[in-house]
Simulated assay, not measured.
Amino acid sequence: MKGNIEERACRLALYIIENKATVRAAAQRFGISKSTVHKDLQDRLSVFNRPLYLQVKAVLDENKAQRHIRGGIATRRKYKGG
């Protein structure tokens, strides 16, 4: 998904907002690295589309607050086999 960086950043933001997706899920969906997702959303989107940036930031902050819970669930699944 190379090309217009602003368009990519907007599409990433909309995907994350609509699906309440994580950065990792968005990166996998768009075939780019997590670093690129962060760079597009934090640095680029905040400059040219501030309202969309604020919406996606709210979702990312919520995901960040819940990541320790997701990690615990993943570990439990890993060791219980389910």
Rank of each mutant, 00 (worst) to 15 (best):
24 R>D: 08
24 R>V: 00
24 R>Q: 04
25 A>I: 05
25 A>W: 00
25 A>T: 04
26 A>I: 08
26 A>K: 09
26 A>D: 12
26 A>Q: 13
27 A>T: 03
27 A>L: 07
27 A>W: 02
27 A>D: 03
27 A>M: 03
27 A>Q: 08
28 Q>D: 10
28 Q>F: 09
28 Q>T: 07
29 R>D: 06
29 R>L: 00
29 R>H: 11
30 F>Y: 12
31 G>N: 14
31 G>W: 11
32 I>T: 10
32 I>P: 09
32 I>R: 11
32 I>A: 10
32 I>E: 10
32 I>Y: 08
32 I>L: 11
33 S>L: 14
34 K>V: 13
35 S>E: 11
36 T>R: 15
36 T>L: 14
37 V>R: 06
37 V>I: 11
37 V>E: 02
37 V>T: 08
38 H>G: 10
38 H>P: 01
38 H>R: 15
39 K>D: 14
39 K>S: 14
39 K>L: 12
40 D>L: 06
40 D>I: 11
40 D>T: 14
40 D>W: 13
40 D>G: 13
41 L>P: 05
41 L>S: 03
42 Q>V: 15
42 Q>M: 15
42 Q>R: 15
42 Q>W: 15
43 D>Y: 11
43 D>M: 10
43 D>E: 12
44 R>D: 11
45 L>H: 12
46 S>H: 05
46 S>V: 06
46 S>P: 05
46 S>W: 03
46 S>L: 04
47 V>F: 08
47 V>K: 14
47 V>N: 11
47 V>G: 02
48 F>I: 06
48 F>W: 10
48 F>R: 08
49 N>W: 10
49 N>E: 09
49 N>H: 14
49 N>G: 08
50 R>Y: 05
50 R>N: 07
51 P>V: 01
52 L>D: 01
52 L>V: 00
52 L>R: 00
52 L>K: 02
53 Y>Q: 00
53 Y>W: 09
53 Y>D: 01
55 Q>A: 13
55 Q>I: 03
55 Q>F: 08
55 Q>G: 02
55 Q>P: 03
56 V>Q: 02
57 K>F: 05
57 K>Q: 11
58 A>L: 06
58 A>E: 06
58 A>H: 07
58 A>C: 01
59 V>A: 05
59 V>S: 06
59 V>D: 03
60 L>E: 02
60 L>F: 03
61 D>G: 07
61 D>Q: 07
61 D>H: 05
61 D>I: 06
